[in-house]
Write a protein that binds this DNA or RNA. Sequence first.
DNA 1: TATGAATGAGCTTTCATTCAT
DNA 2: GATGAATGAAAGCTCATTCAT
Lengths: 187, 187, 187, 187
Amino acid sequence: MTKQELIRKNAAKVIAQEGYHNTTVQMIADEAGVAVGTIYNYFGNKKEILNYIFKVEFKKRTKLLDRLNKEEISLKEKLRIFLDNHFTALQANPNEATVLVQESRLPSKYSLESVDNFINNLPQLLAKILNEAIDKGEIKAINPQLIANAIFHAIRGVAIQAVENQDDYDFEMAKEELFNFIWSGLI
Amino acid sequence: MTKQELIRKNAAKVIAQEGYHNTTVQMIADEAGVAVGTIYNYFGNKKEILNYIFKVEFKKRTKLLDRLNKEEISLKEKLRIFLDNHFTALQANPNEATVLVQESRLPSKYSLESVDNFINNLPQLLAKILNEAIDKGEIKAINPQLIANAIFHAIRGVAIQAVENQDDYDFEMAKEELFNFIWSGLI
Amino acid sequence: MTKQELIRKNAAKVIAQEGYHNTTVQMIADEAGVAVGTIYNYFGNKKEILNYIFKVEFKKRTKLLDRLNKEEISLKEKLRIFLDNHFTALQANPNEATVLVQESRLPSKYSLESVDNFINNLPQLLAKILNEAIDKGEIKAINPQLIANAIFHAIRGVAIQAVENQDDYDFEMAKEELFNFIWSGLI
Amino acid sequence: MTKQELIRKNAAKVIAQEGYHNTTVQMIADEAGVAVGTIYNYFGNKKEILNYIFKVEFKKRTKLLDRLNKEEISLKEKLRIFLDNHFTALQANPNEATVLVQESRLPSKYSLESVDNFINNLPQLLAKILNEAIDKGEIKAINPQLIANAIFHAIRGVAIQAVENQDDYDFEMAKEELFNFIWSGLI
DNA sequence: TATGAATGAGCTTTCATTCAT
DNA sequence: GATGAATGAAAGCTCATTCAT
């Protein structure tokens, strides 16, 4: 693991626990087992650490949605795959997931590029997929923007709960329930 | 308006714009037209201001849900009334709504009592209502906790968009779309 | 004395002893008997303290030269008055004088407005006075800019020595010698 | 060119542009095209680089003055030769000249041996030469220390201007004006 | 009650220096 | 010798909080 990855991972851990604003760079350094100075060899400032965490996660999510967007499968299947992936990522990287969920609502003027990307572009991509499904008659005529947004946040809300109760959480059940709820809302 | 209310209102305004962590007590004082010292005559510390904002809003929401819980009307109607109320409150107090939405995700160890209340108890109350509706056969058998949570966050997500684009947002359309989406997901 | 003056005075003292770059804001605060935070209530940042020291001294020197410029007395007398004033100021405010002398040579890109003023405009004013004296035939035809600059720095050089050996320095002698040297160089 | 010379030259370049305190060892390393570590193989610390720049330049100036001191030529000629030399050096090594001029006023407690040498011994040597000229009746009875100091700084002041406006500066004119001014002040 | 100047702990960030490779 | 990633002490600056007026 590169030192940058080491720092990203440990930063996510501390920020997930403490929140970005309660996390000092020293805390991140201690968790990563490096000196503060070392962090500044890899990140220009504290904000960029958070930025990088978002960027990495955003890339993962986006890549999947982009791929789904192009594939010739039904929306139903796409939604299943997306939820599968999401919950797998959640279990694999709970810290990063927590950070995404907790730190994604700075007022836009302070917002990081990557946070904006995450919070705006992901629903956007989802809306696009919904739109096509409407055209194909797979789902009923809804407002794609609005419903994409609702779905995105519904998933996010369940993710929060899941992550906060990681140890005894039935991820399979959650995925199933969530899928049914969303899908019924669309047809 | 009491001085405490004056401070609460103006604090909500600034915090909505800047975010809690980027808001200084001085900024709140300036907005409210009082001295910093005055604020500390009404609030023990900065956190308590946020706490109070949540408390006031929570009470409003909770009161409604409590009432709905007891009334002998169908879930469908309850949901309608809740959404009506929610969107009305949103338009009436967009600052407070923004604060609720943006500041409700501190890590639990730093969390304020009132924030916890808001984020946990509101879905809880909703879950209770859902549960009864299941028992009565009004809706299908879902996991009430999880779906209440999903609904809560779906509404929250739409609220964010609405508040951020206040000036040219079709609240009626949003309410209608959201209601249909949720309701279809339940039956 | 206002608190701003208190800080300026004590800052000049420490900076004269230690040099601007070896002076921490904490040192200034200690010398002035206030907290660091207090300094930042009166100055935006460390640089502004230095800036203000220069500004105050510059105003003093400039005011005199401006007045001399307008008066209908001979250059010889003007020069005498200026040197008198300069050496009086030197004895009255040796710390400020030391700061002026020691900190006035930052590379121009980092230079403070007030430092630039001091180092450029003072010789400029002197050059103007010389120019008029040439026109009136009081002194010989020299390059006013260049000689003004030479005079300015000659005075500055003597000032350094004087300030560094304050306790046993014959200011009257210095003034006399310097005047004669400069004056002979002009006629 | 030895590596030490390479570093000295490039350090002078950067320090002339940025000032000693705004120059990082990394910047010097980059300019010289070596690694930071390499610099520390040739210089004990950052200060020693500056020290060395002064030492080299001081030796040049001192050598000339020492020689002039011993020669049996008139002060007038000595002064001419010195100014000639000085302005030639200025044009040949403007970076080093700039450094000498800008960095020679650290408070004495932080001062480098070589800086002290430069700023104290050069005027001292000049004073000695003046003293002999007085004894020989070549110039009038002045205070040699003080006037040497004034001359030294007058030259320094003109040098600053010259170096700052290198590209379009009439060095010959400057030399001539300065010589006349100084010489008239002495006789 | 209202004020706002004063406080200082605690934060982010820099950079001269080291040392394993 | 040359390297440059790692270090951590030390700096500038912020801002919640206090308290004399």
